[in-house]
Design a protein around this nucleic acid. Structure first.
Lengths: 237, 237
DNA sequence: GCAAAAGTGTTGTCGGTACACCCATGC
DNA sequence: GCATGGGTGTACCGACAACACTTTTGC
């Protein structure tokens, strides 16, 4: 009986690993932040062959009872100590993307506030560091493509929402917000137009505080406003 | 013998779905088309427990050497005989979304031209049919959420691209294109503004043909223009 | 001739962009 | 006093929305 069971288990496992359904499912996290007013991505020293020791995106297999979103949040927490809402970017599934075996990966985007970017890596990872996007080295797996897709998504969102504020501390000046937008979009913005639009859209509200520092006029401090309802009427086109 | 094999398969499947690393990976296809000027989704009679016999999205596990995109294209081909480019929507991964065992699914959107909507189901599926989105019944799994997400994606794309033309035959009149946009967006459009914008964006070109039919003035026939480069300069905001 | 869809222009509004100067402070 | 970033208003333009009538055909 015991033998029969072991035999069954063995075959079941063979079936499982050779069956088309037995494909690894992982998440990769593209955590973006501002470092010296430049967009930077969080990379970790990988521990798994064949890329052990190289810098790559944090990530890993999803757990049995876990959604992809939960797995991504867990991985981010383990590697950085940060809890964040993550946005799905898309799935990457080239059969040869992981030389260690078939594994698809769903990429997630996380925005990290500048103040939180001081890392508290756990013992699990020796190295965790920010790398400016503009001068990114070659990355293992298909991580370069994933980073590019996530950055594109952030750009799209920045053009219509206040997501760039999540790259800043809870309160910030309009100058800081403008520099965040510029870093994400990769363009220079006109201060007057930028302020006008931020005001019109009602994305931020004044806190009443004033921040002074540097040899210049003090700046009003703002925070993001609780999301306005985006349900807008659609007109004719 | 046949019984033993079936029994073994059943247990192997149970095993596979209970192993942490062995999470099923599937695709679901949301094929959208126009039926009588209304947006409709392709559903098939499911064959797998516990929803056998119910209508649901076509889909299935991905193969060992297959990308998600290839799997989605294959499933669509198998169920409808149609070859189409598919767009990723997003991944759905609630642990309990499939009562038969842990399985994440990546949803794909396909647009089917009205002329191709005559189905040629293979013997593999008894039932394949179009269902108007507006009056969709309850669907098994999380298919309702998936359909909604795909329809949203189609709406977004319709507002900026000529994707709605892919719901039509290769050549079409502007009236047909307008009705396609209206069906997708769920609003009435102004004919003059619609034509003006289509012309300005250069999304379509005249074929030179004239289509006459019905007791009214004949219409010029158009086809989509090879994609204009969407690389546009970004201005200040 | 009449029903039915095709086809066509103008006007007002609004959002986006370009552009230049004064303000408050630290040094 | 000067360097630095904060803060403000106006004018032009292009995109979008609203709006009505003539054209061509089938019946």
């Amino acid at each position: 009986m015991a033998f029969a069971l072991a035999d069954f288990m063995y075959h079941a496992q063979l079936m499982a690993s050779s069956r088309p359904g037995a494909i690894g499912v992982a998440v990769d996290i593209v955590a973006l932040s501002l470092q010296a007013d430049r967009l930077a991505v969080l990379l970790v020293k990988l521990k798994r062959a064949p890329y052990e020791g190289r810098w790559g995106l944090p990530g890993g297999r999803i757990g049995a009872g876990e959604t992809l979103e939960a797995a991504a949040a867990r991985e981010l927490l383990e590697k950085t100590g940060l809890r964040r809402e993550l946005m799905q970017v898309r799935a990457f599934s080239a059969p040869d993307r992981d030389p260690a075996g078939r594994c698809i990966s769903v990429a997630f985007l996380a925005t990290i506030a500048a103040g939180d970017a001081q890392l508290s890596p756990t013992s699990k990872y020796a190295g965790v560091a920010w790398f400016p996007l503009a001068e990114l080295q070659r990355l293992p797996y298909d991580h370069e493509v994933i980073v590019a897709a996530a950055a594109d998504r952030l750009r799209e969102l920045t053009e219509t929402t206040a997501i760039a504020a999540t790259l800043l501390p809870p309160s910030f000046t309009l100058g800081e917000l403008q520099r965040a937008h510029e870093a994400v979009l990769g363009v220079q913005l006109d201060a007057r137009n930028f302020r006008k639009q931020v005001a019109e859209r009602g994305l931020v509200v004044e806190t009443g505080e004033i921040r002074r520092g540097g040899r210049h006029r003090p700046a009003k401090v703002y925070r993001v406003r609780a999301r306005k309802n985006p349900a807008a009427e659609r007109g004719s086109r």
